[in-house]
Amino acid sequence: MHPAYSVILFTTASGAGYGLLTLLALVGISHGEASTLVFGLTSMVIALGLITIGLLASTFHLGHPERAWRALSQWRSSWLSREGVLAIVTYVPALLFGVVWSGLHPAPDLIKPLAVVTGVLALLTVMSTGKIYATLKTIRAWHNPWTVWVYLAFALATGAVILAAITSIFGNFPTFLVYFSCAWLIVAIIVKLFYWRSIDAAPRDLTMGDATGLGGLGKVGQWELPHSVPNYVQKEMGYAVARKHAAKLRKLVIAALVLAVLLMLAALAVPYAAVLSMALALFASVVQRWLFFAEAQHVVTLFYGAEAA
């Protein structure tokens, strides 16, 4: 599948934003009001800023961005529509939570209920992003039980390292947060490795003979393409990264995440190492999301010469 940069930016940025928002809600539930107003506001602005940048980026790949509001109408059947609705709805409790939790307008009794609603809606939004891909039967590498977990794990892992980086800058960096973000980075590594193992093990058992229905006659091969220049279907669905590059990039993702864990541990001694850890984790998140597209083969490629899918 063709990796559209706006979609990669959207899913990684808004994923990190929703992960951070969920963790801030957790902080609100466990610690009550933010330690300082500036810290509270800064972290809320970063969370909602990432989400908003992501949502705006997602409209860049639309043919008609001015009609984007229409995407909120079909939540009964479409996960993309559900994602849009949840993304918009989440702003309401998130903004209220931000105002109350940061201390801008203190109301200690409201922190917990708003935090619970914000956290649940944020996670549901990330889940529906994953579901958009996981429900496409045409793409074996996406139609996989691990897909949604990968989206959730990377949202929380990148959210956790961003929270650690912010607190390291504000000087209120608790030791617990180091171990907490390390744990989420490790969860992301494990979930991604399981995802890769799963898609590598899935049999590519459909052939050109199955697609054309001519397989019963004999061995089917491509004789002539219907057009002389690649068409939309080939450009959009036919994109494939070379297997050897994919293997290298997978190693790069894991190496960057492992290094992010080590740097986070180093933050126990030198707090600013958390910022470097965050940069590496975000880099890994973008690369794995690019691979998520580039490695995925669409079943329509069978009509265009792929031997199996």
Partner: peptide, 11 residues
């Protein structure tokens, strides 16, 4: 509408 050409090698 696109017209493909396939080659079938029958046993």
């Amino acid at each position: 509408n696109r017209v493909h050409g396939y080659e079938v090698k029958e046993p």
